[in-house]
Design a binder for these strands. Structure first.
Lengths: 160, 160
DNA sequence: CCTGAAAGCCCCATGTT
DNA sequence: AACATGGGGCTTTCAGG
């Protein structure tokens, strides 16, 4: 052990912060006054809390959830990728490549059977094929890919 | 062919709608007046468009993006699930079970080697084990699960 | 469908406890 | 750290093009 745990965690969240985050996760456009009312605190207090959480990076941003099928991307898939080498430089250069994959909803570097899982949304199956061939398989460190079509997304209970 | 395509798609989006959606996907808390200014239309027009898109379900909601590690869920994983039977009733009952998995960020029903991919966030590896054993493997239709730890999420370019 | 104006409400800086 | 206040800005409705 070369470092001891912090005596007071600067990232500690109290109950008010947690309730606030839960509300904003459900409705990111709730007004500050409505949020303050719901939490039972003054508007100014509420505003200060939200700002602090933003500045600390606990709130990363607020984003609209768009129906991708309605905007021309009716097809989703998960592309599982396995590399032939896990050399640090190869992995780094691969990161730069997959970060540019058009239509990527989420890119995860994982441990286990696969190395990367890429969740994508595309306009057509042709586009999906082109995406895999031209943006993933092109990289020489890629040994294997497998594409799984998304039939359905099942709404879960979430984490908050 | 038992039905012909609609002569005018009620879900058609024009260029204004698309620009508006892109802005809201980036910053879901942008004010209506700022959005109107950016798009070069009257505030009332902008408000009406956003409302219509919400009512049509194109905008599903607006949610805060929270740093899960900061709120006590530092570990993420993807659980790949394979079923022993693809009978419709079995699948339906399995849906109800996995929809209740605590900490599920995303649940995808996919085609191919696996049947389901569950992206979860948990407080500890112990909790991860318990989650898989008690909420996924318990179901008799589950033949196989494999859990892959998420090392890193790589920011992509997105779809909009 | 889009606009402009007007009433009302919200945001948030400031001062106080 | 939390609260009360007030000016300026934002939201939202509605009549009109």
């Amino acid at each position: 052990m070369t470092k001891s745990p912090p005596t007071s965690d600067p990232a500690a969240l109290d109950a008010l912060d947690r309730r606030l985050l839960t509300e904003l996760a459900v409705d990111g456009r709730i007004t500050n006054s409505a949020l303050a009312r719901r939490l039972g605190v003054a508007e100014s207090t509420c505003l200060q809390r939200v700002r602090a959480l933003r500045e600390r990076g606990v709130i990363r941003g607020v984003h609209a959830d768009i129906d991708l099928a309605a905007v021309g991307y009716p097809i989703q898939a998960v592309v599982k990728v396995r590399l032939g080498s896990h050399n640090r430089d190869h992995v780094a250069s691969f990161h730069e490549v997959i970060a540019q994959v058009p239509g990527a909803l989420r890119i995860l570097h994982v441990g286990g059977e696969d190395d990367y899982l890429i969740h994508v949304a595309v306009a057509s199956t042709q586009e999906l094929r082109d995406l895999v061939l031209e943006h993933v398989n092109v990289h020489p460190v890629v040994r294997h890919t497998e594409t799984q079509i998304v039939f359905e997304e099942i709404p879960g209970v979430g984490v908050l």
